[in-house]
Amino acid sequence: MPPSTAEEARPKAPVPRLSGVPAHKRRAIVVGASSGIGAAIAKRLAGEGYRVAALARREEQLEELRASCASLPGEVIVRRHDAHDADEVPALFEELVRELGGLDLLVYAPGIMPKIGATEYDTEKDLDILAVNVAGCAAWCNPAANLFRTQRDGTIIGISSIAGDRGRKGNPMYCTSKAAMNTYLEALRNRLSEVDVHVCTIRPGYVDTAMTQGLEGLFWVISPEEAARQTLAAARNRVNVRYVPLRWMWVGLVLRLIPSFVFRKLSF
């Protein structure tokens, strides 16, 4: 089939070389794998030879992901899962770990950011954000943390956001949910450090995903693939908190230093 777009016509990046991770330690669960950074991470792991359980709400996209990974050295199994549904996680977690034959890495990537009007105060929307971004994160990280604690081995990656650094006018609960995630993941990291289990918090800036579509004034936008590459590199280097790309660290630093009486005048 001839390439139909310029993008497809470009030479494909070579399949990544197998990483230094031993073969029996390449088993991962990626929650939120239907699009964006989650999908890119799942694909990248499959490229490195991982057995990946990819979970998301939208089944068509999961099937697409599986099809696109068919030629990669790893293996992708897919499961429909709605991140709102914390109750089904313990059973699903056990089932997946059994199917994968163990677990070495959990990636929690789901995140929702509904549009909130400037004068909108909508509890329902806010609780929905908390359900996916915070409750869902705890529902998956807790069983993984407990398993990793007992096997003294494993890594957790949480995709948070630079938005958690300050409470902004634009989307109060989204910022709150990411701040909650940051603190929760930090606490998990501190708890699990004694047994060498690593928890890596990723704070992406603008990534070209469904979440940022239609937003104005974006800059330093990177592709989900690049975000996935940097995310996995950070986790392997046992970085605690990584802004992706790294230069957002300076933005975060400045943001956190702006005094409140100035910050409230800013437009974002």
Binding site: P90, F93, V97, P143, N146, L147, T150, Q151
Partner: peptide, 9 residues
């Protein structure tokens, strides 16, 4: 009573 999936060693 909830069971936890763990590494039992």
């Amino acid at each position: 009573l909830v069971g936890k999936y763990e590494y039992v060693e």
